[in-house]
Amino acid sequence: MGEISIKINIADRVYPLKVNMEEEEVIRRAAKLINDRIKDYQENYAVRDKQDLLSMCVLHYATATLKAEKRVINEDTDVAEKVYQLDQLLSDFFSNK
């Protein structure tokens, strides 16, 4: 699909973007998550500087991303181990026939 022009508001600043049509919803949702997180930080911490709020938000999402990546790697390792064990069982089964 083609590119479209959209405007995204993050921390009271508007950013014009050109995005693929299929990415628009994800980008808008991401901007909403960021703005909600900033609002949460403003309400719960004595921080008013937008740069500090954005830095805290970036740290939150970067940490979440790294945790998710680690979880995926661990799950992939677990699946690979299970496949190896199944392969061994099948090999043993068919070699005894």
Rank of each mutant, 00 (worst) to 15 (best):
residue 1 M to H: 14
residue 6 I to N: 00
residue 6 I to G: 01
residue 7 K to P: 01
residue 7 K to C: 05
residue 8 I to R: 00
residue 12 D to A: 12
residue 13 R to E: 04
residue 15 Y to V: 00
residue 15 Y to R: 07
residue 17 L to C: 06
residue 20 N to I: 11
residue 20 N to K: 15
residue 21 M to G: 10
residue 21 M to R: 13
residue 22 E to T: 12
residue 22 E to V: 03
residue 25 E to G: 10
residue 27 I to Y: 01
residue 29 R to W: 04
residue 29 R to G: 02
residue 30 A to G: 04
residue 31 A to Q: 04
residue 31 A to V: 02
residue 32 K to C: 03
residue 33 L to G: 12
residue 35 N to K: 09
residue 36 D to R: 09
residue 37 R to G: 00
residue 37 R to A: 01
residue 38 I to T: 02
residue 39 K to D: 08
residue 40 D to G: 07
residue 41 Y to N: 06
residue 42 Q to V: 01
residue 43 E to S: 05
residue 44 N to M: 04
residue 47 V to R: 04
residue 47 V to F: 02
residue 47 V to I: 08
residue 49 D to H: 15
residue 49 D to V: 06
residue 50 K to E: 04
residue 54 L to W: 01
residue 55 S to L: 13
residue 56 M to K: 07
residue 57 C to L: 03
residue 58 V to M: 10
residue 58 V to Y: 06
residue 60 H to M: 03
residue 61 Y to W: 06
residue 62 A to W: 07
residue 67 K to N: 13
residue 67 K to Q: 13
residue 69 E to A: 14
residue 72 V to T: 15
residue 74 N to F: 05
residue 75 E to H: 10
residue 75 E to L: 12
residue 78 D to L: 09
residue 79 V to D: 08
residue 81 E to P: 07
residue 81 E to V: 09
residue 82 K to G: 08
residue 82 K to E: 05
residue 83 V to G: 10
residue 84 Y to V: 08
residue 84 Y to H: 14
residue 85 Q to T: 12
residue 86 L to E: 08
residue 87 D to R: 08
residue 89 L to D: 09
residue 89 L to H: 10
residue 89 L to Y: 09
residue 89 L to S: 11
residue 89 L to N: 14
residue 90 L to S: 11
residue 91 S to D: 15
residue 92 D to P: 09
residue 93 F to A: 14
residue 93 F to M: 11
residue 94 F to E: 08
residue 96 N to W: 06
residue 96 N to Q: 13
